[in-house]
């Protein structure tokens, strides 16, 4: 499967889970889009991720994720089959960033797309040393606990935006 096929499948799966995908021409445009999505809001940024490098000067950063309007992260891999983002934790990649603020924005170069959910589990298992943990997230938080009505943004973010861009050649 080509990168473009993976991208198309990822966008469809993410949309089915109520997430929003943005396809950018390159890394610079992707970062512009992240800045635009954060508007004037306060931001926590996972500065320990290579894909977010260079963003910190352009955002209104706050230390405490509980004070942030938006959490901006990179991902380990993104799953085309399900629209899932896999985020492992470590220095500069905190548990709270994609969780506590009401909006999550993820930056994803196409090189990080994998075909299946099983591929994402493999990618997690292959990390050496293993991280203290990881979050797999597919779209915004939801609940069906009140009469099975679908409600979005119950505890986790109510919006998930994924900004995608090609890194290197596209086949």
């Amino acid at each position: 499967m080509t990168r473009i096929d993976l991208l198309a499948r990822f966008c469809a799966a993410l949309a089915a889970s109520d997430g929003v995908a943005y396809i950018c021409a390159d890394r610079a445009e992707a970062h512009d889009s992240v800045v635009a999505l954060c508007a004037d809001g306060t931001v926590t940024l996972d500065e320990g991720h290579p894909d977010t490098a260079g963003l910190s000067d352009r955002l209104r950063l706050v230390d405490d994720p509980w004070d942030a309007d938006v959490g901006v992260t990179g991902v380990d891999v993104a799953v085309a089959e399900t629209g899932t983002l896999a985020l492992s934790w470590g220095p500069g990649r905190r548990r709270s960033t994609p969780l506590v603020p009401p909006v999550h924005v993820a930056v994803v170069p196409l090189s990080r797309l994998v075909a299946t959910y099983a591929d994402a589990i493999d990618a997690l298992a292959a990390l050496d040393p293993p991280p203290t943990g990881a979050q797999f997230v597919t779209g915004p938080s939801r609940s069906g606990d009140i009469e099975m009505n679908l409600v979005k943004g119950v505890h986790g973010p109510g919006q998930v935006h994924v900004v995608l861009y090609p890194a290197g050649e596209i086949r």
Binding site: S17, T132, G133, F136, T138
Partner: peptide, 10 residues
Amino acid sequence: KVTVYQTMLN
């Protein structure tokens, strides 16, 4: 297909 969150803790 999958729920919104899978939390994996080591």
